[in-house]
Design a protein around this nucleic acid. Structure first.
Length: 109
DNA sequence: CCCTTGACGCGTT
DNA sequence: GAACGCGCCAAGG
């Protein structure tokens, strides 16, 4: 695992997120061994926007809040995509976030 | 090369 | 329970 692959790893993990599930930046960061560097995940996702294979809409903050929706084509796109996958979004946050939460540490273990 | 910003997270007040 | 501050790493100005 090269540190230089950090961004790539983020993309890989994001691609593994199942439909109707969401995860947090911190969870991905922790899975990559940089749990304190959740911000890097966000930065990485910034580049993920160029890669349609990376479902950035399934990645939210630890609150389940759609903090990154402004980075999409439209601020509502993120919520739309989530709802299309069966994820209930209310007030820009994931409903039943704990139930929808997909932890790479456990799921990919 | 220094300073600021950024899609976060956690501990403390 | 909300607000604030600090840590973390990288990129842009």
């Amino acid at each position: 695992m090269d540190k230089y692959n950090f961004f790539q790893n983020v993309y890989e993990v994001a691609k593994l997120i199942p439909e109707g599930r969401v995860t947090s930046y911190g969870a991905i960061a922790g899975y990559l061994g940089a749990k304190s560097s959740a911000r890097m995940v966000g930065w990485a996702m910034n580049g993920a926007g160029a890669d349609p294979q990376v479902p950035a809409h399934r990645v939210v903050n630890h609150q389940g809040l759609l903090t990154g929706k402004h980075h999409f084509e439209t601020p509502t796109k993120m919520q739309e995509l989530l709802e299309l996958e069966g994820v209930v979004v209310q007030n820009d946050k994931i409903a039943e976030f704990e139930k929808r939460f997909w932890d790479p540490m456990k799921e990919l273990l």
